[in-house]
Design a protein around this nucleic acid. Structure first.
Lengths: 222, 222
DNA sequence: TCTGTATTTAACCAAACGGTACAAATGGGT
DNA sequence: ACCCATTTGTACCGTTTGGTTAAATACAGA
């Protein structure tokens, strides 16, 4: 047969020209997979569906991530990285301890609200008993800083005599996380059972203020 | 022919004798399905696995519940019924408003802790955007009482001048739920990232007290 | 005892699913 | 010129999975 071009034009020569962009392909896959896993869960997400929404093919997903679990693991790590990175924009040094703590709580509330896919991924990870998080040493380090930020504020407040002693910082962080997380994670069931009022703009502003109140009141001296 | 027993012993008579017990079979299926759905999620749970752990067969599941979604829906409704029923044991009328609210919060904390499968089911339901809860009118009514219980205590406290005005009862319930729910739902990821200390007996007792403190302080006049 | 109905059993099926085989072409670095 | 990681494309595979078929057996009322 003669030269390959144009001879079998009907079905073969449609091969598109492409650029080499491993990082782009990887991050595109991760972005699509994040939203699919967040939407349907680990078992519920479909590799074919993820592949279809990617600008590449299923073959490339396996090429880069091995298998479904590997993809999920990478998505989880990437999501933690992105979200924790987004928390660094907060600057609290020149506020009073009470104001700093309130700001931290209300910022966390908003930050969680802005990242529902991440929240859903953490929900899914908890359904799976945190098995995939356990495989990642990296993520733990990212989260330590959250505690030290709370500790710094709290200790300053205790030293200034405005916060009561004897509260362990991780418990403060726990309360902030709980309120901020629940607001997103349980929105559907809660709003259905108890009304939508807390979830429109006014309701969310109210809750945000409540959380600030609650945390500050919790640690303050009487 | 004579009596049915022993005659065709070779391969047929192994058929176990069964009694007609529709309710027993139904509730047995529901119990098994609850733990399987709670363990693996809606997509993750396997009908064959559920059937195997039942004392009946897969066919019976479809006979009684139609399909997988129907089974899940029934499990969800049953779980809400059971758990909300378990809340009725609480008696708060002869306590001061502050003590009543603290008792309510700490009881809720313990009650959630005692029902991890229910919590996980609600997590799963939220992953699915509450679609199955929406199909059930019955459950909403069960939950209204939770709000009125909070409202009764709160109004009494306001009338007595010990609680500040202007807080909507559903927001109080929201905080109690958030803290109690998160404690179970996010235990795996939280303990992995921030340590197990809050989740042993001493830690849980601490958190329970914190929640009582937090809620009471939140509503109290300064 | 007869009979219709509720319940139970075991084998079976088509579709969906995660993952692979195979073949080939291109891009970039050296 | 050459190597090799990267990309594309499609067809395919074995297993798992939710769901079904068809028939048997027990129960309850007449």
């Amino acid at each position: 047969m003669d030269s390959q071009q144009d001879t079998q034009s009907s079905k073969d020569s449609q091969r598109t020209r492409w650029k080499q962009d491993p990082e782009g392909v990887r991050s595109n896959i991760l972005a699509v997979a994040l939203s699919e896993f967040a939407e349907h869960g680990l078992s519920g997400a479909r590799m074919d569906e993820i592949a279809a929404k990617t600008r590449t093919s299923k073959r490339m997903i396996y090429y880069y991530f091995g298998d479904k679990n590997g993809l999920y693991q990478s998505v989880l790590e990437q999501a933690y990285r992105t979200v924790r990175h987004g928390e660094k924009e907060l600057q609290l040094d020149d506020l009073s301890p009470a104001d700093a703590l309130r700001q931290l709580a209300e910022f966390t509330f908003e930050h969680h609200r802005r990242n529902p896919d991440f929240i859903r991924l953490v929900m899914i990870e908890n359904i799976h008993h945190g098995d995939y998080l356990k495989n990642s040493d990296e993520i733990r380090a990212l989260n330590e800083t959250a505690i030290s930020r709370v500790a710094a504020i709290y200790n300053k407040g205790v030293a200034a005599g405005v916060f009561r002693k004897g509260i362990v910082p991780v418990a403060i962080h726990w309360q902030i996380s709980a309120l901020s997380f629940f607001n997103v994670s349980n929105r559907m069931t809660f709003s259905h059972l108890f009304g939508e009022d807390l979830f429109d703009e006014a309701g969310q502003a109210l809750l945000r203020r409540h959380i600030g109140d609650s945390i500050v009141r919790f640690v303050s001296v009487d």
